[in-house]
Design a protein around this nucleic acid. Structure first.
Length: 277
DNA sequence: AATTTAGCCTGCGCGC
DNA sequence: TGCGCGCAGGCTAAAT
């Protein structure tokens, strides 16, 4: 599922391709997932506009348009934003049934979402940061604001389980279930540890691994779990490097332990009981 | 106020 | 073999 590395990979794949392209058509097979306005108004407003670029904020993709509006995409669990080369018609059955929206012209963008957890908004660019979903977002892990000092102090203030905290998008953005598991494994911290029980030394390791795991995953084009594909429809290779995620019962790569699975916050949580305390 | 839970969706894997 | 239940989970809204 798309977490920061996957969304970043899509952004990088689309960036050189869509800038300056004009939107000539909007086709919608799943109009209900347009948020904040009726699908027909959405289509009317988007048609004829020109794409200025693409940015990422947390797991959201922001596509500013020349008119002063911005398209906001969230890929949910199984969303994909694909650039198409061939303009074959969308059909409501078969392989393309899941294609939700197509924005086409000098570029064809297919937003495909199997489980329909994805969302699309069109908002005035000036109001993007006021959009409630965007406004509540926490710190970007690759930004200067994500300092060790700040991170350590925040951990000391909270008693929630550390895995839930690093997945909290109001705290630090971009870390979803896969990377939370991997980050904690590398940091040697048990996912259920209360945040305020984590020592400054461990906090330093954790802070480092958040950045490091996400960076590594981006280098590998993300993890192709749950049908994730990049803008070209290609798979990411980081999934092969997962040390604990979806490895229940398999041997730990560092010790003789066996990867365990528990549930935290109703999410599958994988860890090595010997390496992670 | 902080933290937890339910619900949104659909396909697949597991157990019987 | 076939079927149905439960899981997968990002995020919001509702509940505690």
């Amino acid at each position: 599922m798309p977490e920061l590395p996957e969304v970043e990979t899509i952004k990088r794949g689309l960036a050189p391709f869509i800038k300056g392209k004009k939107i000539l058509e909007v086709e919608m097979l799943r109009p209900k997932l347009i948020k904040g306005m009726s699908p027909s108004i959405f289509a009317k407003k988007v048609k004829g506009d020109t794409i200025l670029g693409i940015e990422r904020r947390a797991k959201y993709l922001l596509v500013p348009l020349k008119s002063g509006n911005t398209l906001i995409f969230h890929l949910g669990m199984t969303g994909a934003l694909l650039k198409s080369v061939h303009k074959k018609p969308l059909s409501k059955t078969g392989e393309e049934a899941q294609k939700y929206i197509r924005i086409s012209g000098n570029v064809i963008l297919d937003f495909s979402d199997l489980r329909l957890f994805g969302k699309i908004w069109l908002v005035p660019s000036k109001k993007v940061l006021e959009q409630k979903e965007i406004k509540k977002l926490g710190v970007e892990p690759f930004s200067k604001a994500f300092t060790l000092d700040w991170f350590t102090k925040e951990l000391a203030k909270r008693k929630t389980k550390i895995k839930l905290l690093i997945m909290d998008q109001a705290f630090v953005v971009g870390v979803g279930n896969i990377y939370a598991n991997e980050v904690l494994y590398r940091a040697g911290i048990h996912p259920a540890r209360p945040a305020n029980k984590i020592t400054p030394k461990e906090a330093k390791k954790l802070h480092h691994e958040i950045i490091d795991v996400l960076s590594d995953a981006i280098k590998h084009g993300g993890s192709s779990v749950d049908n994730y594909v990049d803008a070209e429809g290609g798979e990411g290779t980081y999934g092969k490097l997962h040390k604990v995620y979806d490895r229940k019962g398999e041997p730990c790569t560092k010790c003789r332990g066996v990867v365990q699975k528990i549930s935290l916050g109703q999410r599958g949580t994988y860890f090595c009981p010997k390496c992670q305390k």
